[in-house]
Design a protein around this nucleic acid. Structure first.
Lengths: 221, 221
DNA sequence: CGGCTAATGTACGAACCAGTACGTTAGTCA
DNA sequence: TGACTAACGTACTGGTTCGTACATTAGCCG
């Protein structure tokens, strides 16, 4: 019980600033996503780390800053994914559909990120505002959308009056809602929006919706 | 300081169970929506009421049950609004557009409700699950959608393979996202989705999107 | 009109929780 | 190799926060 557990290390202590920091961020991401900002416990995060609470304050300064750091990393991940977007060799219709699918997949694969964004919205995006990094950078996907839209509009495939930010909002809405509101929607309507057997259905539905919107002749109201 | 403030009442105390209960619910709704479940303070709710914390526990039992009661009332409001939906005299296209607009308006007018739903999702919809009332009742809007869809599909106006729950999800996604993610979206993309001058734009966009989806011939993927 | 109960108020406790004071050690570099 | 600092651990505190024990009163009903 005293020193029988750890294999080789002198006293269980290893120094690795980068690893410790990263581990705290990992655990904090899960804990904040699990319980919300106020529901998350600094002690709980510390307990799930191989280090102590002291280190959280040593590296991040406090709970608020820790949450901001968690957000920064989470947004960093999605930005990276968007940078690897390679759809501009496709025709505009296929490109938009592919973009929608990639967004769909990313939301599905990162429910913790969705929860963090929900939480941040509850708090009025104050942590994003407090972060130079997050306030600075935009979304690589936006540029891609902008170019595809321009191509599609020029060729007459798409209706003219659509804006990249709006289209991004439209696509994100559906993807976000499906993950974020999974629980209440399931409880109230008896349908699990994340059920694997429905996945392809909703993925297609999103693509159909976006393409229909972009290619429809705006008829009479 | 001792008894100089209140005008007529014997000792400032008036007994009105219904009013007290309702007042607690009102204040609690705002406080929960403001700060989230764990961020909300029972003492703060009590302080903003004309009664004391003791009454919260007297009427509701605890913080959890209070939140559940808040949710029940919030969902009750939207259910009522949906019951007054009168669109079935319109042709299917106009009816769906009208339905989308009503949903849009309701979301915009009740940001607190949206926040409560976000919060409830963070907590896995456990309060809805714990509420017989909420688990029982569905959505009046769903029946309306079902009937409009059937009419539209029968007349050949709408493509056949659309389900009422899915369409409801589609419409809600957009309306919900716009309100719920207003802050992060604004911070990251510099566009306020709730800005009054954009309101008509997004309202039309939603209608166009839904109608385009319902009336498009599903072309090749 | 007296008593009974629903409704209300006060004061307090115990647990919890973010943050810190202070002490220790590992690794590096002169 | 010794000393210096970055990295780490322990133990504690002060304030907060949910919840409750206990006391009180308003209003109704018989």
């Amino acid at each position: 019980m005293t020193s029988v557990d750890e294999p080789a290390r002198s006293n269980g202590r290893i120094r690795d600033a980068a690893r410790t920091r990263a581990e705290i961020l990992d655990v904090a991401t899960r804990e904040f996503a699990r319980a919300g900002y106020d529901g998350a416990r600094v002690d709980e995060i510390a307990a799930r780390t191989r280090t102590t609470k002291r280190m959280i304050y040593y590296y991040f300064g406090g709970k608020e800053q820790l949450f901001t750091a968690v957000l920064e990393r989470a947004y960093g991940v999605i930005r990276e994914a968007e940078q690897q977007l390679d759809v501009e060799h496709l025709d505009p219709v296929a490109a938009i559909r592919r973009l929608a699918e990639v967004t769909f997949d990313h939301h599905e694969r990162h429910p913790d990120f969705i929860r963090l964004v929900s939480i941040e919205n509850i708090h009025g995006a104050e942590h994003i505002a407090a972060s130079e990094e997050l306030a600075r950078i935009g979304s690589p996907a936006l540029d891609v959308i902008r170019r595809i839209l321009a191509a599609g509009q020029e060729s007459g495939l798409f209706t003219a009056d659509v804006d990249a930010v709006d289209l991004h909002a439209m696509i994100s809405s559906f993807c976000f809602f499906r993950v974020a509101n999974r629980h209440t929607f399931g409880a109230l309507f008896g349908r699990d929006l994340i059920a694997p057997e429905q996945r392809e259905h909703y993925r297609t539905m999103l693509g159909d919706m976006v393409i229909a919107y972009l290619t429809a002749e705006r008829s009479a109201r």
